[in-house]
């Protein structure tokens, strides 16, 4: 699959105060994928989205959306994009129906009440259509922003921190909505610092830190490549120190000598060393254990490692 719907080439952004928010960003988003952009606060996630959507002028570089340059062909480029911003911003006195219809018109589409109805129903907003925005809860306001972004049938949807401050149940609902959109062929780019979200949703993951794209990888490959596994053995009798045959970096004693922790990565196993060798050595040394468990590092650990490494 090499059919990018968004190509970002050599993007630099230096704000007026001299702060460099983006440094030589190159990124391609494939048609129909869910791409998660991860990064700590202030890493440049929102700036990157803002440049693509035309809210921030790039200092250097080019963004091509579905074959259209985002500056010279901004009409064609932007009508393909729906943006759900991070902040809950809206016109407090408008009704849900009016504000969503307004968005459709603003994006140059003829009124289509049937489509607006469909969008509102899919986001469980239909019953609230005549309510003023100021009377809605935070989660509902977030959904209204999504409805506004979907009102003009975009091919690309940007979700900037879509589930920040949203309760667990609503977050799951939103994931369902996003999956449904992907089914219908919409490309989705979401930024988040909830790793769980990226792990749950994304096909590919990009990590941005200090304005630079640190890594872009298929989620599964990333997990496998960088995911570390840990085997913890709960020992029958505590050890004061490791026998010399077991002196190696991957092994450590914790919990006052009651636990032996073995850290390894995905491929060590396949080579036949690793766990089986360790267990054989333990048996030779007469070390017995009563229980064991393994743990696979989450994307969160991977992410923290990556960001720390470059800090």
């Amino acid at each position: 699959m090499n059919d990018p719907i968004i190509s970002i080439n050599g993007l630099n952004k230096t704000y007026e105060g001299g702060f460099q928010a983006l440094t030589r960003v190159d990124l391609s988003i494939q048609r129909g994928e869910i791409f998660a952009l991860l990064g700590p606060n202030g890493a440049g996630k929102t700036t990157l989205i803002s440049v693509v959507c035309g809210l921030v002028n790039p200092t250097e570089g080019q963004v091509v959306i579905d074959g259209f340059d985002s500056v010279t062909h901004y009409r064609q480029a932007r009508e393909r994009i729906g943006l759900v911003p991070q902040e809950l911003t809206n016109e407090a006195f408008e009704t849900v129906w009016n504000t969503v219809s307004f968005s459709r018109g603003l994006f140059g589409k003829a009124p289509d009440p049937a489509h607006i109805e469909k969008v509102l129903k899919s986001l469980a907003l239909w019953d609230k259509r005549d309510n003023r925005l100021m009377t809605l809860s935070g989660g509902m306001k977030r959904r209204v922003l999504i409805a506004k972004a979907l009102s003009h049938e975009p091919r690309i949807l940007f979700l900037d921190e879509p589930t920040a401050g949203v309760d667990v149940e609503l977050r799951r609902d939103m994931w369902e909505v996003v999956r449904g959109l992907r089914e219908s062929g919409v490309t989705i780019i979401l930024t988040t610092h909830y790793i769980e979200e990226a792990e749950e949703m994304a096909d590919r993951i990009g990590v941005i830190n200090r304005g630079e794209i640190v890594l872009v990888e298929e989620k599964a490959a990333l997990m496998q490549k960088l995911g570390r596994k840990q085997l913890t053995l709960h020992l029958q009798t505590p050890l004061n120190e490791l026998p010399t045959t077991l002196q190696q970096e991957a092994l450590s004693l914790t919990a006052n000598g009651y636990e032996l922790v073995y850290t390894y990565d995905g491929h060590q196993d396949e080579e036949g060393h690793g766990i089986s060798a360790l267990l054989a050595t333990l048996a030779r040394e007469g070390i017995t254990f009563k229980d064991l468990h393994t743990r696979q590092s989450s994307l969160e650990d991977i992410f923290v490692d990556l960001v720390k490494e470059r800090a």
């Binding site: 959507c53 035309g54 809210l55 901004y74 009409r75 064609q76 480029a77 932007r78 009508e79 994009i81 943006l83 911003p85 902040e87 911003t89 809206n90 016109e91 407090a92 968005s103 603003l106 994006f107 140059g108 506004k148």
Partner: peptide
């Protein structure tokens, strides 16, 4: 000024309009 103040101007600036 009001959309600028409330932040909802993002929508106008990101719309495909001149």
């Amino acid at each position: 000024f009001f959309p600028k103040f409330s932040g909802s101007i993002y929508e106008i600036l990101s719309a495909p309009i001149s």
